[in-house]
Deep mutational scan, measured.
Amino acid sequence: KLLSSIEQACDICRLKKLKCSKEKPKCAKCLKNNWECRYSPKTKRSPLTRAHLTEVESRLERLE
């Protein structure tokens, strides 16, 4: 599967780190437990900047 097509777990399953069936409108866990089942939009991760990478590398060197 391509990364862009990976389905996201519902908010509660993601928060509780449960295996989500990803069914809509309610996944199996939410249906069974009568929880409100919501699927928040995916958040875009910002790409690493060179400055951040350099900072992490220098912190790693100090720890070694």
Rank of each mutant, 00 (worst) to 15 (best):
K1A: 11
K1C: 15
K1Y: 13
K1D: 08
K1E: 04
K1R: 11
L2V: 15
L2M: 14
L2Y: 15
L3G: 12
L3D: 15
L3Y: 10
L3N: 10
L3F: 14
S4V: 11
S4A: 14
S5G: 10
S5D: 14
I6R: 04
Q8C: 04
Q8V: 05
C10L: 00
D11M: 04
I12V: 13
I12Q: 11
I12M: 09
I12L: 09
I12K: 10
C13F: 01
C13I: 06
C13A: 01
R14I: 02
L15T: 11
L15Y: 14
L15N: 11
L15V: 12
K16L: 03
K16S: 03
K17F: 00
K17I: 04
L18C: 08
L18G: 15
L18F: 03
K19C: 06
K19I: 04
K19A: 09
K19G: 15
K19Y: 00
K19M: 00
C20Y: 06
S21K: 01
S21H: 04
S21L: 03
K22C: 01
E23T: 14
K24Q: 13
P25I: 07
P25Q: 06
K26P: 04
K26G: 14
C27P: 05
C27I: 00
A28Q: 14
A28P: 02
A28V: 12
K29G: 06
K29A: 04
K29V: 06
C30T: 06
C30Y: 05
C30G: 05
C30S: 02
L31D: 14
L31F: 14
L31S: 13
L31N: 14
K32H: 12
K32N: 11
K32E: 06
N33E: 10
N33M: 09
N33A: 11
N33G: 13
N34W: 07
N34R: 12
N34L: 13
W35C: 09
E36H: 13
E36N: 15
E36T: 13
Y39Q: 06
Y39F: 09
Y39V: 08
S40K: 04
S40G: 09
S40V: 07
P41V: 08
P41I: 07
P41W: 04
P41M: 07
P41A: 11
P41T: 08
K42E: 03
K42W: 08
K42R: 12
T43Y: 06
T43N: 09
T43R: 11
T43L: 13
K44W: 10
R45A: 01
R45M: 05
R45I: 01
R45G: 01
R45T: 04
R45F: 01
S46I: 01
S46F: 01
P47I: 02
L48H: 01
L48Q: 03
T49W: 03
T49G: 02
R50Q: 05
R50T: 04
R50D: 05
R50F: 00
R50E: 06
A51C: 11
H52D: 03
H52A: 02
H52V: 01
H52Q: 06
H52C: 04
L53C: 07
L53S: 01
T54L: 07
T54S: 13
T54V: 08
T54P: 04
E55F: 10
E55G: 11
E55K: 10
V56R: 01
V56S: 02
V56D: 07
V56H: 07
V56N: 00
E57N: 01
E57T: 04
E57H: 06
E57S: 06
E57I: 03
E57K: 02
E57Y: 05
S58E: 15
S58I: 15
S58G: 13
L60C: 14
E61F: 12
E61M: 14
R62I: 13
R62Y: 07
R62K: 09
R62G: 06
L63A: 04
L63I: 15
L63H: 00
L63E: 01
E64F: 03
E64Y: 15
